[in-house]
Structures are given as structure tokens and as C-alpha cells.
């Protein structure tokens, strides 16, 4: 119980600090949003009027409070560019980014964990050098460039996937999956490399433990030891990077959506920056950050459930 309270307090504190930081960056730094919308030629009177209309003449702390209360009620402000509520603009785009992130995370786990086990089992001098090179390469490759390569090979050359665009899930399940598969894979590759690295080191650390020696002496088979004993403990440290991986997946999707012309949150962020649509940018960044903070919080709780030894 004390654990839960402590984690909850830190969760709320993190949200508070992040929201304050985002608000601060967008509202204290020089340059009036009203001026930005109207252009440099606008006269002072016009700027003043628009500022009033947008509520920019209120004191800073009130604006922050209004913003936060609004968000809690699902009111994210009004987009300058689209002239409609931010929530409305986001509605159709969230499912796209969400599909992308979920499939990327599934690929990371489904490919990363078995490969990590396999690599730990075949840990030899040369094989481990080659494999560590490959994981290093996976971590060092920009996901958006990998996206281009995947398009060139699997979409253009072999015609297995569409080159760009999104097909809604309601239209055709198979085609929808196809349209998000390559971008998800491009995001996942770097994270797969991270999972492999963590899991391999973690398994190798575990196999040095006494309980493994006991199991060997008891005459248990290698596979039984691995899957029933070692893996359960070895997966714990991997769980801690899951929060990091979620962050990376969402960060990566911002760029990848532009490569594959997917109309999700990431491509919206880029176009809203080009049109200096501050309410939209501010809300988008907050939403993406909140998802990550929530993911980290969930990972912390999961960790506690799986390993009750954890103390704060």
C-alpha cells in the first residue's frame, strides 16, 4: 500500500512538472502566438484583439490553470489553423499512431525476446562479437532511414506492402495491417536490438547464480532450467527498459509517420509546427508525454507485482 501511494505521488508530481515545463516553454519564451498567426505586418491593434480573443491577455498562472482544467475535461483548446477544437483534430489521427505503436511494441517483444534467449544460449567468443556488432548496428540506424530501405526493398521491389498511406482497420483488416507493418518494423528494429542486449546480459548473469548450479546438480535439463527458472528472473531487468522503449517508439513514430505519409499524430505535429499552431503543438506534446509517463508508471507497478522483493 505504501508502495502504491509513493508511486502515485511521484506519478502526479511528474505530470505536474512536465505540464509546467511544456507550458513554460510555449508561453514564456519571446514571440507572441498572436503575432505569429497574423504575420509580422499586422499592426498592434490587431495583435491585441486576437490576444484577447485567444485569452492570451490573462495572467500566466491563470492560463496554466485553465489549460490544465480544460485538458482534464477533454478540452484541449482550439487549433489556430484548423479553426476547430484540438480534440476534434486529433480524433481520427490517434488510432493511426496507436496502431503503429502497438504493433511496433508487439514486434519488439515477439522478435526481441526469443532472439535474446537464442543468443544467450550460443554465447561463444566469435558469435558474440558478431552479434554484438549487429545489435550495435540496430541501435545506430536511424529508424526513418531504415523505413526508406524497407520501402525500397519490400514495397517497391517485391511489391509486398504499400509504399505509403494508411488503410483504416474498418475497411480491410489485412490491408490495414499491411499499411502499418513496415513503419512499425522500422521503429521496432532499434528496440529489438536493445531488448536482445539486455536479455542476453541478464540471462548470462542469472546462469552464474547458485540456484542454477543446484538445478544442474539436481539433474534438470538445460531447457527446463532456462524456461522454468532462469528466464523468469532474467526478464525482470528487461521490464525496466520497457518504459524507455515505449518512449522511443512514440518518439520514433513522429518521424516515421512522415516517411510513410501516415496521417497520425507525428505528421500532424510537424505540419502544426510549420503553421505555428501553438495550442495544437502544446497539447500534442503533452498528450504524447502523458502516455509515456503512464507507461512508466504501469511498468513500475508491474515490476512490483512480478517481483515483490522490490522496495522503494
Amino acid at each position: 500500500m505504501r508502495f502504491l501511494v509513493k508511486k502515485l505521488v511521484s506519478f502526479i508530481a511528474t505530470i505536474f512538472i512536465v505540464s509546467l515545463l511544456i507550458f513554460f516553454i510555449f508561453n514564456i519564451l519571446p514571440g507572441s502566438p498572436a503575432q505569429a498567426i497574423l504575420g509580422v505586418d499586422a499592426d498592434e491593434q490587431q495583435v491585441k484583439l486576437l490576444e484577447e480573443e485567444l485569452g492570451l491577455n490573462e495572467p500566466l498562472h491563470l492560463r496554466y490553470i485553465h489549460w490544465i482544467i480544460g485538458i482534464a475535461q477533454g478540452d484541449l483548446g482550439v487549433s489556430y489553423k484548423y479553426g476547430q477544437p484540438v480534440a476534434e483534430v486529433l480524433k481520427d489521427r490517434i488510432p493511426i499512431s496507436f496502431s503503429l505503436a502497438v504493433i511496433a511494441l508487439i514486434l519488439t517483444v515477439v522478435i526481441g525476446i526469443p532472439l535474446g534467449i537464442l543468443i544467450a544460449k550460443t554465447d561463444g567468443k566469435w558469435s558474440s562479437i558478431i552479434l554484438s556488432m549487429i545489435t550495435q548496428l540496430g541501435i545506430s540506424t536511424p529508424s526513418f532511414w531504415l523505413g526508406f530501405i524497407l520501402i525500397m526493398v519490400f514495397a517497391v521491389k517485391f511489391g509486398l506492402f504499400p509504399t505509403y498511406g494508411f488503410i483504416p482497420w474498418s475497411e480491410n483488416l489485412g490491408e490495414a495491417l499491411k499499411s502499418v507493418f513496415l513503419p512499425s518494423l522500422a521503429i521496432a528494429v532499434g528496440n529489438i536490438a536493445i531488448v536482445i542486449r539486455y536479455l542476453k546480459n541478464s540471462i548470462l548473469d542469472q546462469t552464474k547464480e547458485d540456484y542454477v548450479r543446484t538445478a544442474i546438480v539436481k539433474g534438470l535439463g538445460a531447457n527446463e532450467i532456462m524456461y522454468n527458472h532462469v528466464l523468469r528472473n532474467a526478464l525482470l531487468p528487461v521490464l525496466t527498459v520497457l518504459g524507455l522503449i515505449t518512449a522511443d517508439t512514440l518518439g520514433g513514430s513522429i518521424i516515421i509517420e512522415n516517411v510513410f505519409a501516415l496521417p497520425g499524430l507525428g505528421s500532424l505535429l510537424v505540419t502544426s509546427i510549420e503553421s505555428r499552431d501553438f495550442p495544437l503543438i502544446q497539447s500534442l506534446i503533452l498528450i504524447i508525454s502523458l502516455i509515456i509517463i503512464l507507461a512508466n508508471f504501469t511498468v513500475d507497478l508491474l515490476y512490483k507485482v512480478i517481483d515483490p522483493r522490490i522496495r522503494v
Binding site: A13, T14, I17, V18, L21, A247, D248, L250, G251, G252, I254, I255, I285, I288, S289, I292, I293, N296
Partner: peptide, 9 residues
């Protein structure tokens, strides 16, 4: 808290 936001974002 700042580290919770992905670097690129």
C-alpha cells in the same frame, strides 16, 4: 520528469 519526454520530442 524531463527525461520522461523522448529526446526527439
Amino acid at each position: 520528469s524531463i527525461l520522461a519526454i523522448p529526446g526527439i520530442l
